[in-house]
Design a protein around this nucleic acid. Structure first.
Lengths: 206, 206
DNA sequence: TAGATTGTTAATCGATTAACAATC
DNA sequence: TAGATTGTTAATCGATTAACAATC
């Protein structure tokens, strides 16, 4: 599979390009260039051209890139031209906030299942969905062929939850728990820990 | 200043090490090694030793690192041994969720100021603080010497808000708006856009 | 002492940038 | 045509890894 050759770091920049293109489209631009994109994103134009060239020639010499076309191509490369179902594990403070965030559904990621272990919370509604007992997650996730999940449980439970998800066929995990997960190589994990980002900046403050 | 020599990418890993050390301490470990840390984090032991060596020799041959000591050293390097005041701009859905998240204060980042432009929201309480009018932010941020801010406003206002913050002396911005910010080199920006992380993973799904 | 692990140097690996022919 | 910009190659730059002497 040729796509295996493409470095992770290139893939990680494509959503940033896509976001910029959608913004440009909103501002009624029709065409852009690697130079213009680079200036907006603080990235060199060479890097943008090189990244895109992994997937084909999307531009035209002399004129640049048609925004609508490049956007559609990137959507297909990233497999975000379709809608995805997402499971959310944990309906505490953090999980509730995640469930209420509208940005996911607006951009094609629908939280269709919410699980929690607390018997108090089960049956209550969160957003448009009812909270289900975590011990039913393995069965439901397999039945519904869910591939993407978000973890919003306390750190000490996160590894166990991840293992359950993986056994149930989940292959992409967005982890809000402030802890590193150990997973097999075919499973992808991304982390959200805003405190970590703050700590990356205080180093530079006087 | 020698610390200018240390690559950003090294700095960005230190909070991850710190988080792992705090976890180990919680589990009553007293000593660890680059090998053990690396296994937990999925990083090579050589990289951990190399990263730490930029700041001094924190370990002992044969025995490894004393967790309490290394943790304290990393806290000082990162300047997170102190408490920081943080301003939050935007008290909509996203801003409210951010303000309610307890993880910030627990780890030394206190949201002490919340600003919004909507006259409806001003004066209402969010968490422990009262929402203040955004047009007073420049004065207040300067007076209180706030250096860190979080942006949680719609994308189209984020750049303008960032410029206001920078003019008021803010030097570190955590941006929740899904847009790239252009800032001068002395200002640090980190981004939180969970959808972007999801899009980084769908590429690999079949 | 023997075993373990650090801190550091040198080698390797991979990513970014510069440059330019091709061409719209 | 002249100007602009791509896609790509080669050169540069920087980060990771391997290896090992030092030493606890």
């Amino acid at each position: 599979m040729a796509s295996n050759d493409i470095p992770d770091i290139v893939i990680s920049r494509l959503p940033v390009y896509l976001r910029a293109l959608e913004r440009l489209a909103q501002e009624d631009h029709e065409v852009t260039s690697s130079h213009e994109l680079g200036k907006r994103l603080g990235i060199s134009s060479a890097q943008i051209r090189k990244d895109l060239s992994h997937f084909g020639g999307f531009g035209k010499q002399g004129t640049g890139y048609k925004i609508a076309y490049l956007r559609e191509q990137l959507r297909q490369v990233l497999k975000v031209e379709r809608e995805w179902q997402v499971a959310l594990i944990g309906a505490g403070d953090l999980g509730s906030a995640v469930a209420r965030y509208r940005g996911f559904a607006e951009r094609g990621f629908h939280i269709t299942h919410v699980f929690d272990s607390s018997t108090e919370k089960i049956g209550r509604s969160l957003g448009t969905y009812r909270i289900q007992p975590i011990d039913q997650a393995p069965r439901i996730l397999v039945e519904e062929e869910i591939r993407i999940a978000m973890i919003a449980v306390p750190a000490e439970y996160a590894q166990g939850v991840a293992e359950m998800l993986i056994a149930a066929g989940v292959r992409a995990i967005l982890n809000y728990a402030p802890i590193n997960l150990n997973v097999p190589p075919e499973v992808h994990v991304q982390y959200i820990d805003p405190v970590l980002h703050l700590q990356r900046m205080t180093y530079y403050l006087t």
